[in-house]
Amino acid sequence: MISYNITTGDTLTKIFQRISGVGPDHIMADRHFVIIMSTVLCTLPLSLYRNIERLGKVSFLSMILTVIILIIVIIRAATLGPQIPTTAEAWLFAKWNAIQAVGVMSFAFICHHNSFLIYGSLEQPTLTNWIRVTHISVGSALIISAAFALASYVTFTGYTQGDIFENYCRNDNLATFGRFCFALSIITTFPLECFVTREVISNSICGRELSKVEHISITVIIVAACTALSLPYDCLGIVLELNGALSATPLIFIIPSACFLKLSPGRWYHSENLMPAFLIVLGVFVMITGLTMMGLNPQDCSHGAEMFYCNNANISATLPPV
């Protein structure tokens, strides 16, 4: 949720600056103001729903917007990419900081924490339906994520930011429309994570269904805490790496595998237990190495500044309007 707020602040400020009369010093170009207003007007009201099924249409809208954004990124890869100088050794297969990318991708694909809520929202919550839903959703997410990564890196190579819309120039109308779709998609995704956090708190602390007052109070506290933490930080890449190493990697690799080994009657070296044991070792390695490399080699961040190639008159002039 913190990363979603940072993304919203980065994205909406650039959209508002395309409005006549809104300059860099305008209040609508201030990321703190934008994050607070988007929270009060959008994410908090959506997070106050009690039933996750109510967000079904919102989630479908988010999926449609994601496809539109992907199309925009691919178009810009063809029109903008050839005009941006390629960085040195841009096409080496992997560097040491690829381990940091494992944590980021783990964060992108983590869905374990809301599995029970989604399973309970199915019209027919059977194992067959659950298998079909998970394979289709995760499989499509894999294809879309790979297409985003490839198109973005082809365009910007070593200049690629943690938030790829930080790479596009502010006078790019097509990218501005993409930013709008991206911000709307992020705002509609935020409540899904809030549902999970609230459910965990209600189960572990209250141990019962929340009353209306408790439901509202806990939701407001969660959203306010995430908003407060997102205001002083404006580098998405570092937040994603930290989330990936500290939360996503244990949730994806370590904890499920450890639960499987605990419940398995055989020894860890039995054939059915070798893969979970390997995943635990892999998860610990990625977590420790990712945190170490994040400290030694933190990701560069533009902090909202215009990229150097946007000052090139030829590039700016060749960006076609929508």
Rank of each mutant, 00 (worst) to 15 (best):
S59V: 06
L240D: 08
A78Y: 10
I315K: 08
L150Q: 08
V239F: 05
K262N: 09
L127W: 09
T289K: 08
S185N: 14
F180Q: 02
S271H: 07
S257E: 10
G139L: 06
W96F: 08
T189P: 04
T249P: 02
R267D: 10
P276Y: 08
I64M: 15
R50P: 01
F195L: 04
L291G: 06
Y269S: 05
N273A: 11
L231N: 00
F116R: 09
D163N: 15
I143K: 03
V322N: 13
Q17C: 04
I71Y: 03
V286W: 12
I118S: 06
F190M: 06
L92W: 05
D10Y: 02
V40L: 15
F180L: 15
F33W: 06
S264E: 05
P191Q: 13
Y4H: 03
C42A: 12
I288V: 15
P24L: 04
T128G: 10
E306R: 07
C226G: 08
C181Y: 03
I238K: 13
Y233I: 13
C206G: 03
S316V: 01
S247V: 14
S115E: 04
L150F: 14
T292L: 12
L142Y: 02
I255M: 09
L70E: 13
I84Q: 04
D30W: 08
V104L: 02
P321R: 14
A147Y: 10
T134Q: 13
F285R: 11
L55F: 06
V58P: 00
K262Q: 04
L246I: 15
V34E: 00
L92T: 13
C111N: 03
N243G: 15
L44A: 02
S230G: 14
C226A: 14
N171E: 02
I255Q: 03
V223R: 07
I99K: 02
L117G: 02
S115K: 09
V281C: 14
S257K: 04
L41Y: 03
P191R: 11
V284P: 11
E53I: 05
M287W: 06
N167H: 04
Y309F: 15
N273F: 10
A94D: 00
S230A: 15
L274S: 12
V284K: 10
D234M: 04
F16W: 07
S257C: 07
L240Q: 13
I221M: 11
I52S: 01
T160Y: 08
C235N: 15
I110C: 05
I110K: 11
S38W: 14
I15N: 04
S106A: 15
G304A: 06
M1Q: 07
I6H: 11
T86Q: 11
A277G: 15
N173E: 08
A94P: 00
A151F: 07
N5E: 09
Y119D: 07
A175P: 03
T318L: 11
M1L: 08
F190I: 09
K95D: 13
I216Y: 09
F308G: 01
S106G: 10
R267Q: 08
V154H: 12
S217Y: 06
S20Y: 09
F285S: 09
A228T: 14
F107K: 06
T249F: 01
V286E: 06
T126Q: 12
A317D: 13
I36P: 02
T66H: 06
L12K: 00
K57Q: 01
